[in-house]
């Protein structure tokens, strides 16, 4: 690899496989902000979010072969890893109490607002429109699940709706988003460098 800054994401991962630290630094430069922002969204700003971000990139360093370009972009892979780790953290017993306190605080101030999460992106407008066009109950269910780190059963309890209904709404809403974004020419490939 000549210059990490001009390398494609898959080429970066190959270089990481050859233990190139500049390649990992470049992957962090491209995607570290998004990973850290998602972890902070779930865990609150601070040590926990920093730890998740660090773990995600060290894991990429140690096991780059787990990234399969055929299954999606590097950013999706890293965000998927970060989300899973953050949710594990949230659901651990020790973290549960702190989270309940924080949830109470957040509820007191402002609700979740996914529309403000997808911004500063070439396709931000399409994403905003697609999210805004979702039926309200689908949007709420997705927000609580993805940014709140709740299981669909917890979401059902929060919203006072049947579990099966919430389960269906999450999937229907996500599929609706996907279709809408695709209609606007927004494909998962946009997150590729």
């Amino acid at each position: 690899m000549t210059d990490p800054r001009t390398a494609s994401d898959p080429a970066l991962v190959v270089a990481i496989g050859r233990f190139s630290e500049p390649a990992l630094a470049e992957a962090y430069r491209r995607h570290g902000g998004a990973v850290h922002a998602l972890a902070s969204r779930l865990l609150g700003p601070g040590t926990e979010a920093d730890d998740v971000t660090q773990e995600v990139f060290i894991d990429l360093w140690r096991r780059p072969e787990r990234y399969d370009p055929a299954r999606g972009s590097l950013r999706t892979f890293l965000l998927t890893m970060a989300h899973a780790r953050a949710v594990d953290q949230l659901r651990s017993e020790t973290a549960r109490r702190q989270r309940e306190e924080r949830t109470a605080r957040e509820t007191a101030t402002a609700g979740y607002d996914i529309e403000h999460q997808a911004w500063d992106l070439a396709v931000a407008e399409q994403v905003r429109v697609a999210v805004a066009a979702l039926p309200e109950e689908e949007r709420r269910a997705i927000e609580l699940a993805y940014f709140g780190g709740h299981t669909y059963r917890e979401v059902a309890a929060i919203l006072g709706q049947p579990e099966g209904t919430v389960k269906s709404r999450i999937r229907a809403g996500m599929r609706r988003l996907r279709a809408k974004l695709e209609r606007h020419g927004v494909e998962p490939a946009w997150v590729e460098h």
Partner: peptide, 29 residues
């Protein structure tokens, strides 16, 4: 895979990667 790609778009934030955190990652390697 497709739904995760959609979720990743929702999660997108334009914030820069925190430089001080890179120092920790680099040290961890």
């Amino acid at each position: 895979d497709q739904l995760r790609a959609v979720a990743a778009v929702l999660a997108w934030e334009g914030a820069d990667a925190p430089p001080e955190l890179w120092d920790r990652i680099s040290a961890g390697l």
